[in-house]
Amino acid sequence: MTFAEPQCNRIRIANLLDDCSLGGVTRALGVFETAQLCRIAEPTTIVLPPTTIVAPRIAADVIITHFPPNWRRLALLAGLKLRNPKARIVHVEHSYTRAWEALHVPDRPRFRAMLWLAMRLVDQIVCVSVAQAQWLQEAAGIDASRITVIHPYAENPGLAELPLPAPNQRLRIGAYGRFCEQKGFDSLIAAFRNGWFANCDLILGGFGADEAKLRALAADCPAIRFSGKVASVARFLQSCDVIAVPSRWEAYGMVANEAREAGRPILVAPVDGLVEQATGAGAVVDFTDQQSIAAALCDLWGADFKEIAERARETTHNCHQLRQAQWTALLRSVAGASPARDRGCARHLRPAAPVAQR
């Protein structure tokens, strides 16, 4: 069976990466291989070394950049536009956020000047959360009409079919991901060591550069267990009642999305795209504050836990189909405005309405 429409209708798209290692960005690219997107698009992926300055010529109607802009890459973005004048350029911002800026940018005016220049070298911008879009409008002075919000999604078989948790006297709190500064697992471990998570156990899944440091922080705390690399997200989530996401910055937070799909309530840090995921699915928690943690746990134990879990799962209903529809609409709209599409086929492309945020 083929999903292709007549050749002249298919939009040639090129996804540009500077790192093809397994992660949220590369996993989210799977949306371009789905049946719905393959009906209207021919996707390719091109990996450019991080030091690339000279832009390549690319046989594409739409070029999608997935790397964060910086001063050096302004030349690359300008070159993409000059060397591919018939292509439209879409930038997906996966990295920069308000919380990231607060922690990593000593010279805010200079950083925001770079963002202002970079965002004017592309035709359309995709943000991965509403919070990120609001910050980027402010930071780079971008008109809202040039920004589309599309949450990332990577399919994990079995999450929607997992039995809902039914905690007994102790709550099994899980946290997983890369062991690095961003994920904030050290603050979660400290809260457990201080006894702020009463009657709870912590299961940590993952690996990374900070693993030795985290294991040392958790030493002699019987409530904390390391489960190693998460080979199966579904299997890990099945062992947990609640998922904590204590990140210091997080443009969106696919872990929180996966937890919700599995019917696991979430406890998320008050940063960036995590906050909007907690609505109806859990709570926003300051993991460095005992009272904030106590209030969240009291709400979980005092409510109908099954009802919370069901609501968490419901917030992700049809999210995979929604992402496909959003990208389909955006690509049709962007490609319909491209001179490269004027090959007798553009009449088949209908400009899409602004993509709705769920």
Rank of each mutant, 00 (worst) to 15 (best):
N168A: 13
N168H: 15
R172V: 14
I173N: 03
G174A: 02
A175G: 05
Y176D: 05
Y176M: 12
Y176Q: 04
G177P: 03
F179E: 02
C180I: 07
Q182F: 12
Q182V: 11
G184K: 05
G184D: 03
G184Q: 02
F185N: 00
F185H: 10
S187T: 11
S187Y: 08
L188Q: 03
I189E: 07
I189C: 02
A190R: 05
A190Q: 07
A191M: 07
F192Y: 08
R193H: 10
N194S: 13
W196I: 04
A198V: 11
A198Y: 14
N199L: 12
C200G: 08
D201C: 13
L202M: 00
L202G: 06
I203S: 10
L204W: 09
L204S: 00
G205I: 05
G205A: 11
G205D: 01
G208W: 06
D210F: 03
E211Y: 01
E211S: 09
A212E: 05
K213E: 05
R215T: 08
R215I: 04
A216T: 06
A218H: 06
D220Y: 10
D220F: 11
P222T: 13
A223W: 04
R225I: 12
R225A: 02
G228H: 09
G228M: 12
G228S: 04
G228V: 09
K229M: 10
K229H: 11
A231W: 14
S232V: 14
F236N: 00
L237E: 03
Q238F: 04
S239V: 09
S239A: 11
S239T: 14
C240H: 03
D241E: 03
I243C: 07
I243P: 06
I243T: 04
A244I: 06
A244W: 06
